[in-house]
């Protein structure tokens, strides 16, 4: 049985290329690196801001020079206008909140289940075997692949989406929590037991904080899985209940050939991704890095 401590897909950053902005960043950065010297002495924020401005400039230039059809591509200015209008009028607010709500609910359920499963795995050998078997079987499965089943079980509604997200979060988190629980230092455990801690109190006060580095890593992986899954599911789904989410917003805009709105939706997804990733990094700095349980912070 493959012990999948490393998830099959990478989950760092705001997601793979599909979740990024329309223009790739890597080539531009490589060009700049050749000049080393003064460039590398600039503050990171300034370097990034300059790069961003340059990218937007190239983007705008391309649209003007190549004279592409507005039915397939938009200029940065049009996208900015669409973003401002979407957020001003509320057309983007509703879908964003819908997506975030489903994500939050799905993650909460997934995390609770992961904790329950892992606690069981720590407590009993049979639970441990069940968890290893299940994670080995289900973890490699792209989480969106269970969507057809979810639709069959729950119908065309939010519950199906929540289920898919919970499933996406559950397994990578359970794998990481399990690793974290199993690698609690023997001395730390003995200290807890000699204070008279048993059962749930030992898990809550010793196992959980001790496993926090692995847990945070698991949540980071889990949310990135969930985030991609939910957008993909919304694209497939269309409208769920009263309101569609961001995926639906994009698909809908495409349907009406409102290309700036398509881009506005993509930018919103990317920005939320970056913001959440940043949030987790701050969380990590405030906890495991501060406690010396993990060296250095990412981002």
């Amino acid at each position: 049985m493959a012990s999948s401590t490393s998830p099959p897909r990478t989950a760092r950053g705001s997601g793979g290329p599909e979740a990024r902005g329309p223009a790739g960043r890597a080539p531009a950065r490589r060009d700049r690196r050749r000049g080393a010297g003064p460039w590398s002495r600039l503050p990171t924020v300034l370097r990034r801001a300059l790069l961003f401005a340059a990218l937007v400039g190239v983007w705008q230039l391309y649209v003007v020079v190549a004279d592409v059809s507005p039915l397939v591509f938009s200029s940065p200015w049009e996208v900015a206008v669409a973003l401002a209008e979407g957020w001003g009028s509320g057309a983007l607010v509703g879908p964003t909140l819908t997506t975030l709500r489903i994500l939050g609910l799905g993650m909460a359920i997934g995390m609770a289940l992961a904790l329950a499963l892992t606690a069981l795995a720590v407590a009993t050998k049979a639970g441990d075997d069940v968890l290893s078997l299940l994670t080995a079987m289900i973890n490699p499965l792209p989480s969106v692949a269970v969507l057809p089943l979810a639709m069959l079980w729950f119908g065309l509604n939010e519950t199906a989406l929540v289920f898919v997200v919970a499933n996406a979060v559950l397994w990578p988190l359970a794998v990481n929590l399990g690793t974290g629980f199993r690698t609690v230092p023997q001395t730390t455990l003995m200290v807890g037991r000699s204070l008279g801690l048993r059962g749930w109190r030992l898990i809550r006060d010793v196992h959980l904080p001790s496993a926090l580095p692995a847990t945070v890593a698991g949540i980071k992986t889990g949310w990135a899985f969930g985030w991609r899954t939910i957008i993909a599911a919304e694209l497939v789904f269309g409208v769920a209940g009263a309101q569609g989410g961001l995926g639906f917003f994009i698909n809908n805009a495409r349907f009406y050939l409102d290309i700036p709105d398509v881009f506005a939706g993509l930018v919103t997804i990317a920005v939320i991704g970056i913001a959440l990733d940043l949030l987790f990094s701050v969380l990590e700095r405030q906890t495991v890095v501060r406690w010396g349980m993990k060296q250095g912070a990412t981002t």
């Binding site: 230092p185 003995m190 200290v191 037991r193 000699s194 010793v206 349980m293």
Partner: peptide, 19 residues
């Protein structure tokens, strides 16, 4: 059973809770 009436100090330097 392990209990606080017999408090233990270990050799290992990681016996404090790091958090």
């Amino acid at each position: 059973e392990p209990g606080p009436d017999r408090a233990v100090v270990f050799q290992e330097l990681d016996q404090l809770l790091p958090w």
